[in-house]
């Protein structure tokens, strides 16, 4: 899928994550997190795995993590992807396990 325009999902409140997707070449992930040392790799893996499921290969991802659990990161990323690809009304159940 192709990123059509910038989109944002999530908040900056504790235990949440704010994700901004915008057009880019290849996948680049800019991660701001207080737990980057411990969980940076895991957060990036959650993001790249989900992007792969949506077959998104060109995107700039800005993740501001406030201690979100993986399920929260996934939920916010799905919302951002749907907004950025104008597919809010087409649920892609296949990406959820």
């Amino acid at each position: 899928m192709e990123i059509k325009h910038t989109a944002l999902a999530g908040t900056l409140e504790s235990s949440d994550v704010q994700i901004t997707l915008s057009e880019g070449k290849g996948i680049s992930i800019d991660l701001d997190s207080q737990v980057e040392k411990q969980f940076g790799k895991q957060i990036k893996k959650v993001v790249t795995d989900l992007l792969a499921k949506y077959e998104i290969s060109d995107v700039k991802v800005h993740v501001v993590d406030k201690g979100a659990l993986d399920c929260t990161i996934k939920a916010r990323l799905i919302a951002a992807i749907q907004r950025a690809t104008d597919t809010q009304n087409e649920q892609n159940w296949g990406v959820l396990e």
Binding site: H5, T6, A7, L8, T11, L12, E13, S14, Q18, T20, S22, K66
Partner: peptide, 21 residues
């Protein structure tokens, strides 16, 4: 506390809803 985060987050989301990112 969390009030600052809530404040900035709300402002950013409100701008995002107007396609200002």
């Amino acid at each position: 506390g969390n009030v600052f985060n809530k404040l900035v987050s709300y402002l950013i989301s409100d701008l995002a809803s107007q396609n200002i990112f």
